[in-house]
Design a protein around this nucleic acid. Structure first.
Lengths: 210, 210, 210, 210
DNA sequence: TATGAATGAGTATTCATTCAT
DNA sequence: GATGAATGAATACTCATTCAT
C-alpha cells in the first residue's frame, strides 16, 4: 500500500525481530512524543517505555531522529490502512466522496494526537526523511483527487479539472483542522455536525447535473 | 487592539527601554526560530543576534519560554495590525468579507514563516502562556465572525447563525493552509488564484437572495 | 624461540583451533590498531575483520587487552623470527655485527607500523602483560649484547664490557628510530644510507686492532 | 622562541584570564595523562583536577583533543624554554655541542614523563594539530643542526654537511631514549655516565684535527 | 563451538541560568 | 543597567562484555 519508505538500518539481522522490537519502540515513542514533544523526550525514556535497555534501543535505530521518522511513517501507514479498511465506495463518484470525507474525518478524530504530532514535529526530521514524510502526506491527498476525478467522469461532480488538486487539499486540511483546532471547535460542534457541514461546503461548489 | 496579553516581568524598570530591548530580542529570536526552530536555538544566539550580552538578555526575560511567548504575541499583533491597516470595508457585509479574505490571505502569504512558527512551536509554551496565545488566535477568528454577522444582518450573506463560528474558522484555516501547505500548493496555484477560488468556496454556501 | 610468554586463557580446548582462530584475530587487530589505534578500535570491528562473531571472539580471549597483548607478542615473535632467518654470521664478531645491524634495520623498515604500534599502545597493557612485553624487547637487545661480546672476545671489537648493554640499546633504538622518525628522516636519507651511516657511528667507538 | 602555534578558540574573551585558566587545565591534564593516558582520562577529571566545573572547562577549549594539543605544545615550550635558559655556549662549536648534549639530556631526565606522553599520545591528535606538534619537534632538532654547523665552520667538528641532519636527530633520539628506555637503562647507568658515553659516541665520528 | 541480541555503565559535550563586578 | 564567566544537570550515543540458544 505504501509507496516508498526509507529503510532505517539496524544492527540486528533477524528481520522478524527487528519488526517486533521497532513496534515496541514506535508505540512507546508515539505516546511520549504526544505527551512531551520530540525534544523533551529522552532516548532513555523511549527505551524504558519500550521495555528495552538503552543499548538495545540503539541496536534498532541509529539516531533519535530515526525514531521520529519511524513514528511518522507508522502514523501515515495507519491512516492509509484505516482508509483502506473503511473507505466505502458508493455507486457514483459523488456518493464515494461523501462517504470518504466522513470516513477520513472520523479517522482524523481518532488519530488527532498523531495528526498534531506530525504537524508539530515534522520539521525536526533530517531533510531526506522529511521528503519521504511529505510524499506520504501527498499520497493521502491524491486518494481524494482520484475520487474527485471519478466523480467528474461519471458526471456526478462538476469541477474544473484544474481545481481537483486544490479541492483534495481542502478536504484533507479540513479533516486535519478537526484535530488541530479541536480546542475551539469541539466546544461548539459534534464530530458528525462537523462532518456534515464541511461535506456540504465541499459539495456546494461541485453542484452537478443540478 | 489586542485584548489581553500576559505581561512578562522584567528586572529593568524603565518601560521605554524594556520596549526597545524586547523588540531587539523579538526580531532576533524570530529569525532564529524560523531558521532553526525553538529548541535548536540557544539563548546565547538570541543574545548575540539581539546585540546584547547574555546577562542583559535575562534582565528582560525570565526564561527562554518567555522569548517564545514574546515572539508569538508579536506575530499575532503584527497580523492584527496589518488587518487593521488593510482590512477594507465594503458597502455590504458580503463585500467586506470578500475584501477581508483577500487581505487576510495576502497577509498569510507575507507571514508564512511566522504562521508556521506558531503552528510548530506553540506546544513548547508553558500552559498559561499557551492559553493567551490561543486566545489571540481566536481573536482573529472572531473578526471574521463579526463580518459574517454583519452580512447576515444586512442580508448580503445567508448563513445559519450556528455556523458562523465554523465558517470563520474555515476562513482562517484556509488562509493558514496557504502557509503550511505551500510546498504542495504553490507548484500549482498562484496566490491570487488561490484567493479567488477559496473565496468562491466560502461564498457558495452563503448564497443570499442578494 | 621465545623465552617466556604469558598464556592467555581460552574457553576453547582444542589447541590447534585456538592457534588458528587467534591468528585470524591477531591479523585483523594488527591492521585495525595500526589504522585507528587501540582505543578507537572496537571489539566488534576486530570480530568482523577476523571473520568471526563477537561471541566467538570472547571464546578465545578474555578482554580487549588480551588482544593487544597477543598482537604485541606476535610482533616481537615476528621480529625474532626474521632475525633468526636473516641474521647472517660473519667470520668475526665485527662482521657479524655489521651484518646484523643491516638486517635489523631492514626488518625495522619492513615492520615500521608494528614498531610504532608497540611504542604507542604498550602503555595500555595491564601491568603483568607489560612486563612480558618489555622482557621480549630486552630479549632483542640481548641478541646484540651477545654479538658484541663475541666481538670483544675475538678481538675484532674494542669496547669496555660495562658499555656492552648501552651499545646494544643504542643499536636497537637507532633501528627503531628509522620507524618512528621516518616522517623526518626519509625525506633526506635512503634506508641504505641510513644503515651505513649509523653502522659507522656505532663502529667508530669500537675501533679495535687499533 | 616558538615558531608557530595553533591558536585554540575560547569563548572567554579576556586573554589574561584565558592564559591563567588554561595553565590550570594544562597542569591538571598533564598529570592525568601521564598517570592514566589520554583515552582513560575523562574531561570531568580534567575539570575537577583543574579546580573548575566541567562547563567552565568547555569555555576554554572546544574538545578533549584541544587539551591534548595544549599539553603537547606546553611541553615543547617548556623544553625550549629550559634549553634557552641552560644551553651554555662554549668557545668552539665542539664545546657548545658537548655542553648542549649534557643540558638536553638532563632536561630529558627531568621531563621523562612528558617525553613519554608525547611519544604515546601524539597520534590521538587531529591531523592539523599533529603537524604543529611535529613541527615543534623538528624545531628542537634544528637547534642541534645549528650547533653542528657552527662547529663545522669553526673547524672544531668534522662532519659531512649531508649528515648534519641525521646527527642532530641522533642526538635528540639518544636523549629521548633516556626517557623511554629508562626501565632498562637506569638499572645499569647513572644519568651522568649515560651523558658522557653518548657524548663520546656522537663525537667519535666527528674527530676533527682538534 | 559458534553466535549475536541484550545490556548499562560510561563519555564528551551542551546550554539555560545565575551572580559578582 | 550591562556584562560575561561560571556552573552542573542533562543528553545522545558507544562499546566491552555476557549469556541463552
Amino acid at each position: 500500500m505504501s509507496e516508498k519508505t526509507k529503510s532505517i538500518p539496524s544492527l540486528v539481522k533477524d528481520p522478524e525481530l527487528v519488526k517486533v522490537r521497532r513496534n515496541q519502540i514506535i508505540q512507546a515513542a508515539m505516546d511520549l512524543f504526544v505527551q512531551k514533544g520530540f525534544h523533551k523526550t529522552t532516548t532513555r525514556e523511549i527505551a524504558r517505555e519500550s521495555g528495552i535497555g538503552i543499548g538495545t534501543l540503539y541496536e534498532y535505530i541509529q539516531s533519535k531522529e530515526d525514531v521520529l521518522y519511524l513514528v511518522c511513517d507508522h502514523i501515515h501507514s495507519e491512516v492509509e490502512q484505516k482508509l483502506d479498511e473503511e473507505m466505502t465506495h458508493g455507486r457514483t463518484g459523488r456518493e464515494t466522496l461523501v462517504n470518504s470525507i466522513g470516513d477520513f474525518f472520523r479517522i482524523m478524530d481518532q488519530m488527532q494526537d498523531s495528526v498534531l504530532l506530525i504537524y508539530q514535529e515534522m520539521k525536526s526530521l533530517p531533510n531526506e526523511m522529511l521528503h519521504y514524510v511529505l510524499a506520504k502526506e501527498e499520497l493521502i491527498t491524491s486518494r481524494f483527487e482520484r475520487i474527485l476525478e471519478r466523480g467528474i467522469e461519471d458526471g456526478s461532480l462538476s469541477l474544473q479539472p484544474g481545481y481537483v488538486k486544490l479541492t483534495a487539499h481542502n478536504i484533507v486540511v479540513l479533516g486535519e483542522m478537526w484535530a488541530f483546532r479541536r480546542w475551539a471547535l469541539s466546544r461548539h460542534y459534534s464530530l458528525e455536525e462537523y462532518i456534515s457541514h464541511q461535506t456540504a461546503l465541499v459539495l456546494h461548489e461541485m453542484k452537478s447535473g443540478r
